[in-house]
Each structure stands twice: as structure tokens, then as C-alpha cells.
Write a protein that binds this DNA or RNA. Structure first.
Lengths: 138, 138
DNA sequence: GCATATCTTTACGTTTACGTAAACTTTAAC
DNA sequence: GTTAAAGTTTACGTAAACGTAAAGATATGC
């Protein structure tokens, strides 16, 4: 079914454009748990998926600690007590709120980019027509 | 028109829940340019707006350097050469791509949160009914 | 059998974004 | 006139997330 089940550290590094140092660091921090063949790390497709999630988290501005918190919660889901599960639901709600905030932030920023792009194009027009920049109606 | 035009450092710190240290740091890094009354910093409503943007950038995972790049570009728009303006448009496009990626990331994450919340609720049901966790159909 | 490539561990260095403390000035209150 | 509150500069400290270099094991090609 799946494309491949095992990966070397440099394969993953190439695929996701990160250094091997980073991958080893993520393991040290408890975000990845590759198995070993002798001394050499063997990464499963689950590790690969997790690496993808780590990098997505980084793009979203999450710290490694935050991403690890999520990983730990997911892992707990099968074995957790009622109390743990309830706490998980709280964390999930908190993340949702964060995402809502981020969506808002993105929308605002997009509007600003639109506005500034327009100003920029106007300024370009003025330059190209060798006109003095005119006062435009807001 | 505007609510207020001048702010002390601690007023801004309270309003946005940051430390004065951070605000001074942002000034050192060239992100804020308060005027001075003697030795004391006086922040304008423009500074206040910028501080808001800095913090929004942080929520979105931008570094201070990235936010400063935007500020500098905006400031350049009025005085910039054609070449500078064209470069600005490039940067704007790049930011748009980033935002598109982030929106994608957020959508994925929301789906995962949904899935995990459901799993979590199922597990809770099982516990509350003192049943053995059954194999559910995927 | 020796070079090359890929892997390993260990460890110190670096950047970013502040925290924290010390020492001092200025303004307001009593 | 001195105590308290808010401001200042200077400077060392710190956590996160790696970079970078050293020194060595392991396998593969020629």
C-alpha cells in the first residue's frame, strides 16, 4: 500500500530540505523515535509523517514544545484516563482558538498586502509617466 | 478623530500585555521610532499601530526581521525608485505565497483536530460505560 | 587494502528574543 | 524634603533551535 516503509536520515533530510542535525535534534527533544539497526537510525513512515507535522508546525509559528505536546496527547488517546482525555479536549479547544486567531490575522494581512500593492503600482505609474506623484483620493 | 495620540511605554505595555523590555527591544531593532520628551519615550498612534503589527506577526510565526522588512518596504513606497518598487512587489508576492501555505496548513490542522476530538470522545464514552475499548470501524 | 560515502556521538558556538538586575533621573504625592 | 512611581541606560543571563567541527565506526566500490 504505502510507498516505502523505511528511510535513512539523509533521505528524509533531502526530501524535506532540512539538515540531519535538525532531525537528530528533534529526536533528542522527543519528537521522533526512530528504531536502530546497530547504531544507525531507521525511520518508519510514521516518523516521516511526524517530521512533516513538525515542519508544518514551524511554518505556523509553533515551538517544538507545542508540537511535542500535541504528539504526546495523540499518543495518550488510546491509553489515557478520563481525566487525561478531558484535558486533551481542553487543549484541542485551545488550539482551535489559536487557529481562529491566525485565520483572522491572515485575513487582515492579506487586506494590507492588497492595499500596499495598489499604492505601489500607483507609485510605479507615476514614475513611468515622469509625473510628480499626485495626491490621490483616499 | 482618533482616540488618543500619545502613549507612554507602560501604557502600551499594559494594553498589549508585553513588557517594557520588549518594547524597548523592538525600538533597538528598528521596528519602533518613538520620539523623546527629554529622556522619556513618547509613542504616537503610529507606533501603537506598529506594535500591534509586530505582535500579530509573532502570532503568525514571523521573526522580527521579517516584520521589519515589511515596515521598511512600506516606508519606502513613497520615496522608492522604480527598482525598489518592483522589488517590493516581489516581496509582496512572496508573502502572499506564505499566507496561502499557512491557510493550507491551518485547514489540515483543523481536520486533524476534528478527527482527534472524535477519537477522544469515543474513548471517553467507552470509559464511562466501563466497556472494553472496542475496535471501531475506521 | 584503500578511498569515499554515510552514518555515529560529543561538544562548543551562534542567533533570536527577550529576562533580570543594577544604578540612576525625573515627576508626583504627602 | 523625602518617599514612591515610572522612566532611563548598561550589561550580563537565558531558552530555543539549531550550526559547525572533531573524531571515529561501517559499508561499498575499485
Amino acid at each position: 500500500m504505502s510507498e516505502k516503509k523505511q528511510f535513512s536520515i539523509s533521505e528524509l533530510a533531502r526530501e524535506f530540505d532540512v539538515t540531519t542535525r535538525s532531525i537528530r535534534f528533534y529526536e533528542d527533544e522527543g519528537l521522533l523515535h526512530p528504531s536502530r539497526q546497530g547504531q544507525t537510525r531507521i525511520f518508519s513512515s510514521k516518523d516521516r509523517a511526524r517530521l512533516k507535522l513538525i515542519l508544518r508546525g514551524k511554518r505556523m509559528g509553533f515551538s517544538l514544545a507545542e508540537t511535542r505536546e500535541l504528539f504526546d496527547l495523540w499518543d495518550e488517546t488510546l491509553t489515557g484516563s478520563e481525566k487525561q482525555l478531558l484535558k486533551t479536549l481542553e487543549v484541542v479547544e485551545h488550539r482551535r482558538a489559536q487557529l481562529a486567531q491566525q485565520k483572522n490575522d491572515i485575513a487582515m494581512m492579506e487586506m494590507e498586502l492588497d492595499a500596499h500593492e495598489n499604492r505601489c503600482r500607483d507609485a510605479l505609474e507615476d514614475i513611468r509617466q515622469r509625473k510628480q506623484p499626485q495626491q490621490r483620493t483616499a
